[in-house]
Design a protein around this nucleic acid. Structure first.
Lengths: 156, 156
DNA sequence: CGCATTTGCGTGCATATGCCAATATCAGTC
DNA sequence: GACTGATATTGGCATATGCACGCAAATGCG
């Protein structure tokens, strides 16, 4: 009876990614818990810090995140005073996101916790393998990959 | 000004996983759209099909998913008539999940679409590399990995 | 048997994520 | 300078995910 659903070589790449993400999110979140940030939230703050004062679209793009999802994710961070959003002076449509002083402090507070989680991960999985994995993932979430996936005809 | 947040070698494994997952979910979902299932939903059905008639706990464990999250995820699938949940006869506390005939049909309908998405992925990323990646992810979401992460002292 | 503990689930709440529609704004045209 | 089309964001709706808590049922013990 529909044995094709059982063939294990047919494991979904998407499902595997989701499982790994759930697990790692859980593990990292537990380590980060003392500072009150989740991996997801810290990631938003890190990306803002890296970009300086990005617009919503820029930030969403750098995070490979839907714009509306980003808007939602920012709400708790605004409420807690870690980020501020204001209109761009040049373009009234755009909003620019910036860290507050409190946000920077929270990021500093989270750093050693995150470092600890990252170290634990790499102690088990291997530092080199982890770097390799991040590279592979970066390739997968790159715009080029999405473009190639969407337009099967295109060549790099 | 807090230049440590800029050091790019310090890229979070968790954030990289999340980005890749968001991207792949998006790409696969678009391909799966015609059948009305998301990658996430198809994954639930596939896991049920594989397990036969698992309890909530068994299913959640196999999916590396929180039990309450699984309960939530099942609701749309129950509503649409793809799965049924009923009490276990032997243990009144347990519930067993099973595919309906409609669920099996939907899974069959989704198969070629999923295969297409999987093929596109592997055409770009490479069949062997994809298999390797799934293996790496399986290692990461394994219970052994979580145990080693949680108890840094333990040795395999 | 009766009770304390353990186990399996569901619910409520909060965040995460994405789609679509509506709104506001900008840029180019006549 | 009003009109048209493109762009940036928000809000509403639905699903995904996990934690804390409460409920029901099974299990162990005297």
């Amino acid at each position: 009876m529909t044995a094709k659903h059982m063939k294990d070589p047919l494991v979904c790449n998407g499902a595997a990614l989701r499982k790994a993400t759930r697990r790692i999110t859980q593990l990292y979140d537990t380590v980060l818990a003392p500072c009150g940030l989740s991996v997801s939230q810290r990631s938003v703050l890190v990306h803002i810090a890296r970009a300086g004062e990005p617009t919503m679209t820029e930030l969403a793009q750098s995070m490979v995140l839907d714009r509306s999802a980003l808007a939602h994710n920012l709400k708790p961070l605004q409420r807690d005073g870690y980020v501020v959003v204001r209109r761009d002076e040049a373009d009234g449509r755009s909003r620019r996101v910036a860290l507050t002083e409190l946000g920077r402090e929270k990021l500093d507070e989270a750093l050693p916790l995150w470092r600890s989680a990252q170290d634990r991960f790499e102690a088990i999985y291997g530092v080199d393998r982890a770097a390799e994995l991040r590279l592979a993932l970066a390739e997968i979430f790159s715009d080029d990959f999405a473009a190639a996936f969407t337009r099967p005809g295109a060549r790099s």
